[in-house]
Amino acid sequence: MSNKCIIKSIAQVSCQQPLSDEWLTSPILYDESYAAAIEPNFKEFINPIEARRLGRVLKRALCTSLSALRQAGLNNPDAIITGTGMGCLENSEKFLLQLAQLGESCLKPTLFMQSTHNTISSLIGINIKCHGYNNTYSQKACSFESALLDAWLQLKAGAIKSVLVGSHDEVTPLFAKILKRNSPDFKLVSETSVASVLVAEESAQPNQIEVENVNILYRPLREELIRHITEPAVVMLGLNGNESNDRHYCELLGKVSGNPIMLHYKPIFGDNFSASAIGFYAATRLLQTGKIPEFMYHSKPAGNVIPSEITLINHYEGNTWSLIKLKKH
């Protein structure tokens, strides 16, 4: 477990400008409760004939993955590990709809073929002809962290040298309604696609961002969570403006001494089962630029903050918690 896990590149498609860091200076603000992702120019990454066959989440996943690989100057990583809370939701929903309307005859195979959760990770594997380790995790709001934990363990252990880790979720109008009603926790529902190349290095170079630790805890005691927060803490929380969601963070941080600096990202990127991946992306950018935009602060301290470490904390309905510690060298 001696290698360091370094973030080599990262790309996003969300309800902010796609494949861009424009949100840092001019974020798009939404009044609605549901914001679909802004589509990038797919032609740059996918040939139009292939694109026509692919559902939205697949196109986005391919796009962010290929973008992250290009930035990293890597054609073929040792592994592809993907998180997705709902998988190819649109296709699953359409297949369910056909089953409901047409019954059990006259169904077409295409929707089913692209309905399993691992369709995303396999598609990337097939597209870049990557025969390496390929896995998919689906654990509600902790899907990205599950993929990241798998990647982190294997990089640290030296089983792999490079990995494409991502998390991708699409939200259909029906699912947005269901989510809003079942989980009022989700205030601005949106869509997320994030892909990142991580590499194993014996030692970190100046300015590199390291994933120092990844933890997933199920129904933990607050004390167990606090153990993972180093002071003085800069924490990026899954706060989304909804009291039933946010109170868990407030209770937890209330027990951390030394006035932790609390940041948030869901007010501008929205929430879905892959949202924590965009938190990971945003935290990476804040560490790289050394600047924190005003709108990222949940609690603004006096004076200027130049973060060198950020701990990302996320939970789903107070049950499954995740902590990711990022460090700038």
Binding site: N118, N134, S146, L217
Partner: peptide, 8 residues
Amino acid sequence: MITTSSTA
């Protein structure tokens, strides 16, 4: 801790 793998 828990998680779920989903590779068909």
